[in-house]
Design a protein around this nucleic acid. Structure first.
Lengths: 180, 180
DNA sequence: TTTAAAATGTAGCACTTGCTACATAAATAA
DNA sequence: TTATTTATGTAGCAAGTGCTACATTTTAAA
């Protein structure tokens, strides 16, 4: 890697950290520049415009999350244990900022705003793939259970955003009453 | 109702419509004023500040949604039919803007931003109450199934935001495989 | 060593944001 | 009719937004 690219990567790491800690809303060029220890002028030197910058930063954040998830990977689990397991995971202080950012991403994606929409789709795909790998079931079952797991975790994340923990517990209770 | 209050309500209706159609992001005082056919100056005459304005407008929107939902109410349905029923409902063009706004609300609520956080909690409560009324089950079951329904519908709304319809179908398929 | 390219600084533009100061016109109360 | 709220207009401020123009220094290629 050349010197320039190295510097760019250095800035990008710091920007990713800043976005993760403060959200998309706090991601103005000047804010990001300050967090990275440079100027907005320099950011537009390394990136063509803000859209390109955000695309690369968010992609990096998403890659980081995947790495974290892969590291926290266990052996495959049956569905009824997987959901509580993932609930614990998204409550983890390391993971939680990613979930909060994810909610912001979805809000923008729902308006087809770019680059957020396409990045959100990518992340969605990765997560379903991740669920699929974790579920203990045959392939035909996985096909249905991975999306179902995704949906339930997303829903839980939303309830968690409005401090509905007790409702989450009740729902998990209700879920465990079901059998195949 | 006095003349002033009447005028305020008139403006508020138009602002609610605008927010519903264009989202929170498009809700600057000047945008709202234009949509209501007045000036930002006048909005701050009727409301103390933007926070108060948003609080009242969003509360009204939420009340409108509840009215719509109540009108679309059927007889009580067992859980496994309720989820597909609600999925159809949130796909309804009349309801869909509310869901999109809801996603935006959640994103802000997750940062404890006011007035969004408290309003989102209120709406969450109403929706769980609504689910509870619709579910065909005894009270003890409802206690668990209403939050579970809420979670699943929220999750579906998120997947829908990133055009994951086929995954939603698979998940619903998977869900119907479960039995008590 | 000259030359081209990449890195960085300083200033600013045009626009949007919430909100305010200062005024006048209109409706209402005394 | 006078006095007092209430309604509305005009202008602007201070801060923030993405982005650009123009300059200079530093680095690397010839």
């Amino acid at each position: 890697m050349k010197k320039g690219e190295l510097r760019k990567q250095e800035l990008q790491d710091k920007m990713a950290k800043h976005i993760l800690e403060n959200g998309l809303q706090a991601g103005s060029l000047r804010n990001l520049a300050q967090a990275a220890g440079t100027s907005d002028r320099m950011l537009l030197h390394y990136y063509h415009d803000k859209e390109e910058l955000m695309k690369e930063v968010l992609t990096q954040i998403s890659d980081n999350l995947i790495t974290i998830l892969e590291q926290a990977r266990t052996v495959s689990i049956p569905f009824n244990q997987l959901v509580p397991h993932l609930y614990k995971l998204i409550k983890n202080p390391v993971v939680k900022p990613y979930i909060q950012l994810w909610l912001e991403l979805i809000a923008r994606a729902s308006k087809k705003e770019e680059p957020y929409h396409s990045i959100a789709k990518q992340i969605g795909d990765s997560f379903i793939h991740y669920c699929s790998e974790l579920i203990q079931a045959d392939d035909k079952e996985k096909e249905k259970l991975a999306p179902l797991t995704f949906i339930i975790i997303e829903g839980i994340a939303m309830l968690d955003a409005i401090d509905f923990e007790s409702n989450i517990e009740k729902a998990l209770d209700g879920l465990s009453d079901f059998k195949k």
